[in-house]
Write a protein that binds this DNA or RNA. Structure first.
Length: 289
DNA sequence: CACCAGGCAAGCC
DNA sequence: GGCTTGCATGGT
């Protein structure tokens, strides 16, 4: 991977395994939106970004070398060798198909608290409405920032949300999930959930600790540790994954537990990548293999 | 008007 | 422990 700073933009050349549609439409992040010209804009951490890919060059607009090196490079997981991951997964025929289809996926390294709140919102919900609720949360309680002449909002801190009453959260239309968001915010704000401690824990312990938050069960916790704690062996089993796994590897219905056990044995430390390729493939193709 | 959506908690046994 | 049910809201 090579990059240069050019007219205030960062231009990356020769980057394999990087497709903006694959990255932002595979359901891992909820704050990125496609522009008319094919670029995407979104917010992560304290920064907004518009990013495009023209032929083989990736362009991060109005971005300093400092922000690229200090934040975006890690956010886009540019230090991980996806060619190697895809080669290993391709020993399985279905994963070969799925990882070729979504070959430009990267697992973004997202903010922990943002993942907790976002995946609490995801429960029994659909992706377009999850995005709307997350955006309302940010525009109502986040900090305004201006980037390339446009207005964006940061994801609100847990400290900010913890000061709210449940009735204050009604504006985001999260339904029964509102009380869970508040519970999570309070646990982050008062230290009952500590990012520093979570990062030091073994995967199972981190997952259990996250599940002490109301509204965080097995599946949501699996997403959080995969997308924000870099536990790449985590294999979240949702309705889509359940159906496609049953379709590929089993005859009929299996429990979530059975599918989870099977996936851990089959994919081991690459489970998270396998899950993302399968999820994207299943959704974009309405399940067909 | 049913039924569904990246599940979860609470209430049963 | 495993299984069932209700859940806010908005879209088909």
């Amino acid at each position: 991977m090579q990059y240069k700073s050019e007219n205030g933009n960062i231009v990356i050349s020769g980057q394999d395994s990087f497709d903006l549609c694959h990255i932002f439409e595979c359901g891992q992040a909820f704050r990125w939106n496609k522009n008319e010209d094919g670029s995407y804009s979104g917010v992560a951490g304290k920064k907004a970004l518009t990013i495009s890919k023209n032929r083989e060059d990736i362009v991060l607009y109005a971005t300093s070398c400092e922000d690229f090196e200090g934040f975006w490079k890690n956010y886009f997981d540019l230090n991980t060798d996806y060619l190697k991951i895809k080669a290993a997964l391709s020993h399985d025929a279905a994963l070969k198909t799925a990882s070729e289809f979504g070959g430009g996926i990267r697992i973004l390294r997202q903010d922990l608290w943002e993942s907790v709140a976002s995946f609490i919102i995801s429960a029994n919900n659909n992706i377009s409405r999850i995005k709307k609720i997350v955006e309302l949360l940010c525009s109502s309680f986040g900090e305004e920032l201006t980037y390339m002449g446009k207005r964006f909002y940061t994801f609100p801190t847990p400290e900010k949300i913890a000061t709210l009453e449940l009735s204050d959260l009604a504006v985001i239309r999260a339904g029964f999930r509102g009380k869970y968001i508040l519970d999570a915010a309070k646990k982050f704000a008062d230290g009952r959930i500590s990012e520093h401690e979570l990062r030091a824990m073994p995967t199972d312990a981190a997952k259990k600790a996250l599940m002490t938050i109301n509204g965080v069960g097995e599946k949501v916790a699996s997403c959080i540790i995969l997308f924000s704690l870099s536990r790449c062996e985590s294999f979240p089993v949702d309705v889509w994954i359940k159906r496609i796994m049953e379709h590929i590897y089993f005859d009929g219905e299996k429990t979530v537990g059975e599918i989870s056990d099977f996936a851990h044995k089959k994919f081991a430390d690459l489970g998270g990548y396998a899950q993302q390729y399968l999820f994207y493939y299943a959704r974009e193709n309405k399940l067909g293999f």
